[in-house]
Design a protein around this nucleic acid. Structure first.
Lengths: 199, 199
DNA sequence: ACCGTTGACATACGGATCGTATGTGAATAG
DNA sequence: CTATTCACATACGATCCGTATGTCAACGGT
């Protein structure tokens, strides 16, 4: 009963290519990854790649999209466990910092991503993580919790701070000891947006 | 009187290569820049390049170092014009955001830099910009102006926020209108580090 | 001032990779 | 059952990087 429809087979090849690409890009980086090796590891050839994804960048974008979706899903889950939107915003930030400890996220999204795809906010994946932050900031502004601030600006800066912190934590010598420092510094920065705060 | 010493000629060669590389990397990006074209534009060949800089990455690092030095010098000049260290810190942050509007800084330092050279804090150029921020934060901590916070963490987050803001401003549709929003949001975040602040 | 040596740079070569153009066999439609 | 489509493989050309080798001017000692 290996009765496979055409669409199913194509779906399967895309799955295999993305999985293989994700591992290869994470280990060797975008530039040092050979498409011949990549496709061979997936039991295919470059023909399948160019047919399904257009070019090397297209496959990379698909991998980034997958990772971005996973990150956003996890951040959302953690944020929803919090009682207030403010706590949710902080939880999201901390979650991003933590998730960026993953070598795959590190190398693919943070290091190679901007070079290959350009400004993260313009990625095909729409950057779901940034969307979540933006929504939280907008909600807090509406509640009067925050000082008057441009939603987009605040979201971008918060996300930038978190991702850069992640970069730092991942590259330092003792990540487990550094992580809480980064998360606390992030909380302090975020508190700068509060209408009232007690130091 | 074209009496040139050997060291002078080599210096001149390096100057020409770096200048040509800076233009090419800024326009086409690291990956899409051909070393043949690059050296030819400088009136040389790849031989000169590999002799002086080792490889393509070496030349790129030299360009990054040059830009980084220029950025740090400018930020320092602006910071020294301020009356207090706190104002100097804010001025530095605003300066970084402004400078990143330069397409060369944008493409070479922010986009391609991390992909080619890895974590900015580990760059050969030592990242003079980050050094300046770290010094300011440490001084403010000693003065008791800031809440208790890890110096490295705070510096990294502030710099990350500023650079990411720069990325956003540069890529948006109306940079001149967006720039002040980014700078104000940056100021608010930084104020989160203050021991006392009035919203 | 002469000459052997050094070294800065040019030239030549091999290897690897990307994107396209073409071929093929199985799944689909009529 | 046959013609067609199309997902993927194969073949090809072009480019580019890094190294190995060649060359000629600058340097230092006599």
């Amino acid at each position: 009963m290996t009765r496979r429809t055409r669409a199913e087979m194509m779906e399967e090849t895309r799955r295999k290519l993305v999985a293989s690409a994700r591992a290869a890009f994470a280990e060797k980086g975008f530039a040092n990854t050979s498409m011949d090796d990549l496709t061979a590891a997936a039991g295919l050839t470059r023909g399948a790649l160019y047919h399904n994804f257009g070019d090397k960048k297209g496959l990379f974008a698909a991998v980034v999209d997958q990772i971005d979706a996973e990150m956003a899903a996890r951040a959302r889950a953690l944020a929803e466990a919090e009682a207030t939107i403010w706590d949710a915003l902080l939880a999201e930030g901390s979650a991003y910092i933590e998730m960026a400890l993953d070598p795959e996220v590190q190398r693919i999204v943070l290091r190679d991503g901007p070079a290959v795809l350009g400004d993260p906010a313009h990625w095909p994946s729409q950057n779901r993580c940034l969307d979540a932050t933006r929504a939280a900031v907008a909600a807090l502004l509406a509640q009067g919790v925050l000082r008057t601030v441009d939603v987009e600006a605040a979201s971008r800066l918060l996300n930038g701070a978190a991702l850069n912190a992640a970069f730092w934590v991942a590259a330092c010598e003792d990540p487990s000891a550094t992580l809480p420092k980064a998360q606390e510094a992030f909380r302090m920065l975020a508190e700068g947006l509060l209408a009232e705060h007690a130091p």
